[in-house]
Simulated assay, not measured.
Amino acid sequence: MTELPPFYDDLAGCLAEAWRRLEEGAAHQSGFHAPALATLGRDGAPRLRTVVLRGVDRERRTLRIHCDARSAKAAEIAADPRAALHAYDPKAKIQVRIEGTARLHGQDDVARAAWAASRPMSRICYGTAPGPGTPLPEGGAYTQPQDDAAVEAGFPEFRVVVLTAARLEFLYLARAGHRRASFTWDGAEPGATWLAP
């Protein structure tokens, strides 16, 4: 029988493992590097897309991703900040789901710091014309910045999304029996409970 991890029957351990995996994902070291972000569309329907996890702050319960100000994602968050994030690492057999409130940062200290820490190949996306989601007559009917000045000119379109967790759900799949836990931060005291898997 496979040895069970230390967090298996430990609620605090499950929460710590969730944040550890998310931190590793932001550092490109786990399957949590490219989670899915859900927002509410302007029509009220759910919208889901894969994003790149750029930063995690477990003390503040925040996760950071980047987007283009011209994207539907940015417009949806501006209209309704409720959002959810889903990450699954098949090797670890761990799923984390987070629900919370997203905040957009553009041309402020948060955005400037994230822009400065971004690689040039990541910055190129924000100078692309036309903006994300624009219908094209053919696949290549858009332009990308060709020099450093053009890449830097994309900064006004750059947005940082900071998602603050109000609820985190952890699921570990194991032959001995799955473990599922829920953590909430919607009152004076954080809540934690096991859930049936």
Rank of each mutant, 00 (worst) to 15 (best):
D68A: 00
G13Y: 11
A34R: 15
P156E: 14
R60N: 05
R54I: 01
A27W: 10
A165D: 10
R82N: 01
T50S: 10
L168C: 04
Y172Q: 11
L48A: 11
Y126G: 01
D68W: 01
A83N: 10
L168R: 02
G154S: 13
A34K: 12
R180G: 02
G133H: 13
G106V: 01
D68H: 04
A27P: 06
G154C: 11
E189H: 06
A165K: 08
R60K: 12
H105F: 13
E24W: 06
E189K: 09
H33Q: 15
A84M: 03
A12P: 00
E59F: 06
G187D: 15
Q29Y: 00
V162Q: 15
R167Y: 08
L4Y: 09
Y126H: 09
P6A: 15
R61G: 07
F183W: 07
R70G: 06
K73W: 00
Q95P: 02
A166R: 15
V161K: 02
R58L: 01
E76T: 05
R180K: 14
D43R: 10
P81C: 08
A16Y: 00
P6R: 13
A74V: 07
A18D: 07
P46M: 13
T50N: 03
H178Q: 13
E189I: 02
A79M: 01
Y8T: 02
A176W: 11
Y126Q: 06
G139N: 12
A87L: 05
A174L: 02
L53D: 06
A12W: 02
H86V: 15
P156G: 13
R97T: 11
G55E: 08
A113W: 08
L195E: 14
V56N: 05
L22T: 04
R180F: 06
A141Q: 14
T193K: 11
Q29M: 06
